[in-house]
């Protein structure tokens, strides 16, 4: 069980996260939706301290941290127990796909080279890229790079996987392969929080949807509840606009 309580963050006097509290069961796939600037990415990044929250408490299956008093040691420990997939992949450009996945295992988990290589290869196999293990990121397509990013995160066996708009930087053609990989990961029971604009995918894969607006959770529930029976005006408006634009484009 993962519990976030009273998470707040402001930046230059603007409240980005306004006293957020969420409870996540093991194996949950939580999707964060909302317009840009709603605080979705900041929320995700505050959970592993890439963004320093002003206050709030996180209970990660018993490992507790208070963000207002977090120590360096706690921050490293927190990051070891979580993993992140980034919008722009952020692969280490000077290392091959295999070495990207091995990096955390060797340096953070202190595994020897053979052990790390074995796990890394298994992970690459999982995302369907074992034949690209020795390619450098710049020789891979965006979709392949993101799958390596997912393999790198999963290799760390995180208690919580954070995905920050994993398909937003991809060509439409390449979105599918990454979504497939995420879906497959969700099916293994991996607990994750996903920020995404792919509403139909969210509907399909999420066990819980949070709709954020101005740093607050204004709608929370199963995909069916949030998408088909939203109660707040803001969520109704957002979904209405989203689906209108969607059909308008087609």
């Amino acid at each position: 069980m993962i519990k976030v309580s009273n998470l707040s963050k402001s930046f230059h006097g603007n409240l980005i996260l306004d006293d957020l509290s969420v409870e996540i069961e093991k194996g949950d796939v939580v999707a964060l939706i909302g317009s840009s600037g709603a605080g979705k990415s900041t929320f995700l990044r505050a959970l592993n301290c890439l963004e320093q929250a002003d206050k709030g408490v996180l209970d990660l299956e018993g490992f507790k941290v208070d963000f207002s008093t977090i120590t360096n040691k706690q921050r490293l420990e927190l990051r070891k127990q979580t993993a992140m997939v980034f919008q722009h992949f952020n692969l280490f450009q000077h290392r091959t796909a295999l070495d990207n996945v091995k990096e955390g295992l060797k340096i953070v988990k202190k595994m020897n080279d053979r052990e790390a290589a074995q796990i890394a290869l298994e992970q690459l196999e999982q995302v369907g890229l074992s034949d690209r293990a020795h390619y450098y990121p710049k020789h891979l397509s965006g979709g392949q790079q993101q799958r390596v990013g997912i393999a790198r995160a999963l290799a760390m066996k995180p208690k919580l996987l954070l995905l920050d708009e994993p398909t937003s930087a991809l060509d439409p053609e390449l979105v599918g392969e990454v979504l497939q990989t995420i879906k497959k990961t969700a099916a293994t029971g991996q607990t994750m929080i996903l920020v995404s604009h792919e509403m139909s995918f969210v509907y399909e894969v999420a066990s819980k949807v949070l709709f954020l607006d101005k740093g607050k959770i204004v709608e929370e529930g199963t995909p069916d509840q949030v998408f088909n029976h939203p109660t707040s005006e803001r969520a109704k408006e957002f979904l209405h606009n989203y689906f209108r634009n969607k059909t308008g484009n087609q």
Binding site: L50, R79, H88, F92, I107, V108
Partner: peptide, 17 residues
């Protein structure tokens, strides 16, 4: 690239690492 630094940090590396 700053993103790569964040990726390394998110894996749990110290600044020196």
């Amino acid at each position: 690239n700053k993103g790569q630094i964040e990726a390394a940090e998110s894996l749990g590396m110290t600044y020196l690492q």
